[in-house]
Simulated scan of single mutants.
Amino acid sequence: MRQKVLLFGLILIGLITCFVTGCKEEKSTAHAAFYYWKTTFLLDKSQAALLKDGAANQLYLRLFDVIWDEQKNDVRPNAIISINQDVHQFHIVPVIYITNKTFEKLTPGQIEPLAEKVNKLINEIMTQNKVSYRCVQIDCDWTTGTKNRYFSFLKAFKAVNKKQLEATIRLHQIKYADRTGVPPVDKGLLMFYNMGKLSGQLKQRNSIYNATDASKYISYLPTYQLPLDIALPLFSWAIQIREGKVIQLYGKIGQKELSDQDNFQQTAQSNVYKANKSFYLSGLYIKENDLFKLEDVNPKLLNVAAKQLSKHLAHLENRNIIYYELSTVAASALEAKDIKEVSAHF
């Protein structure tokens, strides 16, 4: 009898506690961060404030690219970052982008020397700017044909760098992991964007993110054999369409440019604009009657993406939610509370 009374008392205490606290869900342990991908690092006041207040100064900083030089028939660094301000207050993860062509061309004997060169340049840049680091992220859209050489590079780099190693993962590499393989790293970074089809059809779904295309991949997430951080989109682009065909994709043409009524008129579809005349815009040729379909991401859409994705992820404490990227117009339209709200879904 005493046991029943005790059990009843515990249940009653639990109900009262739930009533008082509103039965809140377990608090998210995810941490927000930003990518920065420009070749010159110099934050303005609004970017610095968003980084500090929205992401506690957590920054994934692209230091340089690694490309294949056809003339020299060898690899070389490209677009090395120029850091034009003091960065000691930031918690920086170096990011290196390596083209898939590099691994198409590399011989097995060039892999280890490349790992040593990449590690050396990372350390030179970080030492020059008096920044210590605990992790490196490698970004490469490898294929089944380059898988073995890329994975060998990752192993060689890990051996010489001796810090935590992460690799970016595209959605198709999640779905077809049995073909593309799982990189030999400590953690993956799922790029949850660029999932739709670029099309001249004006009513085509948003190719940066849409829930329909995302649903084709996310069911494969629980069985993926790496812990995953998440990258969410924070950018826009304009698709140039001429006579029903995609001509080009522009990240530098946004709402501001398309709202210039001397050059464009808005169509019945609110995110599609028509060129009034033929002209040049920042060196880009635009022909009269060209259509520009603006695709972007706002806080509402980010919340939809985060909510959809979080339901399918294996549990991970202290997951990083990285927003790509800090220098975009889309980022300037956000406030720290928007970032915190989206990150809280994880």
Results as ranks from 00 to 15, higher is better:
Ser215Tyr: 07
Ser215Asn: 12
Tyr217Thr: 05
Tyr217His: 02
Tyr217Lys: 03
Ile218Ala: 14
Ile218Cys: 10
Ile218Val: 13
Ile218His: 12
Ile218Tyr: 04
Ser219Cys: 04
Tyr220Met: 09
Leu221Met: 14
Leu221Arg: 14
Pro222Cys: 07
Pro222Gly: 04
Thr223Asp: 12
Thr223Met: 13
Thr223Ile: 12
Thr223Arg: 13
Tyr224Pro: 05
Gln225Glu: 10
Gln225Asn: 13
Gln225Ile: 05
Gln225Arg: 15
Pro227Glu: 00
Pro227Gln: 02
Pro227Arg: 01
Pro227Ser: 00
Asp229Thr: 09
Ile230Ala: 08
Ile230Cys: 02
Ile230Leu: 15
Ile230Trp: 08
Ile230Pro: 14
Ala231Gln: 03
Leu232Ile: 03
Pro233Asn: 06
Leu234Asp: 00
Leu234Tyr: 03
Leu234Ser: 05
Leu234Arg: 04
Phe235Ser: 08
Phe235Ile: 04
Phe235Lys: 10
Phe235Ala: 11
Phe235Thr: 04
Ser236Thr: 04
Ala238Phe: 03
Ile239Asp: 04
Ile239Asn: 00
Gln240Leu: 06
Gln240Tyr: 02
Arg242Gln: 04
Arg242Trp: 00
Arg242His: 07
Arg242Tyr: 02
Glu243Phe: 05
Glu243Gly: 15
Glu243Cys: 11
Gly244Pro: 06
Gly244Met: 02
Lys245Asp: 00
Lys245Pro: 00
Lys245Asn: 05
Val246Gln: 01
Ile247Val: 11
Ile247Thr: 09
Ile247Phe: 00
Gln248Asp: 14
Gln248Pro: 03
Gln248Ile: 03
Gln248Tyr: 09
Gln248Phe: 08
Tyr250Ala: 15
Tyr250Gln: 07
Tyr250Ser: 13
Gly251Phe: 06
Gly251Cys: 06
Gly251His: 14
Lys252Trp: 05
Ile253Gly: 05
Gln255Met: 13
Gln255Trp: 00
Lys256Ile: 14
Lys256Arg: 14
Glu257Ser: 06
Glu257Lys: 06
Leu258Met: 15
Ser259Asn: 15
Ser259Tyr: 06
Ser259Val: 10
Asp260Tyr: 02
Asp260Gly: 07
Asp260Leu: 08
Gln261Trp: 11
Gln261Val: 15
Asn263Arg: 15
Asn263Cys: 14
Phe264Thr: 13
Phe264Asp: 10
Phe264Gly: 12
Gln265Ser: 11
Gln265Met: 06
Gln265Ala: 11
Gln266Asn: 08
Gln266Met: 12
Thr267Asp: 01
Thr267Cys: 08
Thr267Asn: 01
Ala268Cys: 11
Ala268Val: 11
Gln269Asp: 08
Ser270Ile: 10
Ser270Asp: 14
Tyr273Lys: 08
Tyr273Cys: 13
Tyr273Leu: 11
Lys274Met: 13
Ala275Asn: 11
Lys277Ala: 08
Ser278Glu: 11
Ser278Asn: 03
Phe279Pro: 01
Phe279Gln: 09
